[in-house]
């Protein structure tokens, strides 16, 4: 926990946010994650790509315990994820997540979506929680929609609310699971812009995405996964210019036209 308390210094960049060592996971007989080793530093931005079914979503869902790994070690912000519910709670409090399908709560207003967890988990007062929510809604540029319900918003707006909702918990790490895949093309940019800003402010981010422009612009490292394994990890320039593995080359040739 002293990681979180220390003042931000350049040295902090070397501290570990997420460590995955020898992680395996099975869905029944299906081996989804095979010996995953990945260390993410604080303030690092990782983009994970790969063909569908390669285990990228499962990988980031393991980090906040939505999926449980069966072998190996996952340490999030100094807390190892175990079967113990308290370790999960501790990890989830530091990790925000944004989903492909937004998953906003349809029975709550935008503002209530953002205040629910701060009130019930952090114990904030309603007024404090609303102030914080408005702050983040302004940052994602939709404060004027705060009294609407999710169904009244466009996909891009909903996804920005989802980002604000996660930020209201002041997470130290943000996970994005294909945040723009369910959006119409003209809405992708507004969401990516918010994510780029977030990256520039130094948020630790793990992004599952096929937005290669985004990866080029903000990623510190790009992870390529196939068949449950991490095939290649490299800086974006190297990754796109000189992919080392055949599978990476094939994948890139398919998505970059």
């Amino acid at each position: 926990m002293n990681v979180a308390m220390s003042t931000p210094t350049p040295a902090e960049h070397t501290l570990v946010a997420v460590e995955m060592a020898g992680v395996h996971k099975w869905f029944g007989q299906f081996h989804v994650l095979k010996d995953i080793n990945l260390t993410v530093m604080r303030k690092e931005r990782i983009v994970i790509c790969g063909p569908s079914g390669s285990g990228k979503s499962t990988l980031i869902r393991c980090i906040n315990g939505l999926e449980q790994h069966q072998r190996g070690r996952i340490v999030v912000n100094g807390t190892e994820l175990t079967r113990d519910v308290r370790s999960l709670d501790a990890a989830r409090r530091d990790v925000g997540m944004v989903f492909q399908q937004f998953n906003l709560f349809p029975h709550l207003t935008v503002l209530e979506n953002c205040t629910l967890a701060p009130i019930w988990v952090r114990g904030l007062s309603k007024a404090e929680a609303e102030m914080r929510a408005m702050h983040y809604l302004e940052r994602v540029r939709i404060p004027e929609q705060s009294y609407k319900y999710p169904s009244q918003l466009s996909g891009g707006q909903q996804q920005r609310v989802a980002i604000a909702r996660a930020l209201c918990m002041n997470p130290k790490i943000m996970l994005f699971d294909e945040p723009t895949s369910a959006l119409d093309p003209e809405m992708i940019k507004e969401v990516l812009d918010v994510m780029i800003e977030l990256a520039q402010e130094g948020m630790t981010m793990l992004v599952v995405s096929h937005e290669m422009g985004f990866a080029r612009e903000v990623a510190d490292r790009v992870v390529f996964m196939d068949d449950g394994q991490i095939v290649e990890i490299n800086g974006p320039d190297e990754f796109f210019a000189r992919p080392r593995h055949e599978r990476t080359k094939l994948f890139l040739s398919q998505i970059l036209r």
């Binding site: 906040n64 315990g65 939505l66 709670d89 989830r92 409090r93 990790v95 925000g96 997540m97 989903f99 998953n103 906003l104 709560f105 629910l116 967890a117 019930w120 988990v121 989802a162 909702r165 996660a166 918990m169 996970l175």
Partner: peptide, 10 residues
Amino acid sequence: QTEAAFSLGL
């Protein structure tokens, strides 16, 4: 819905 709630720490 449950996943979103869990990932918010509820």
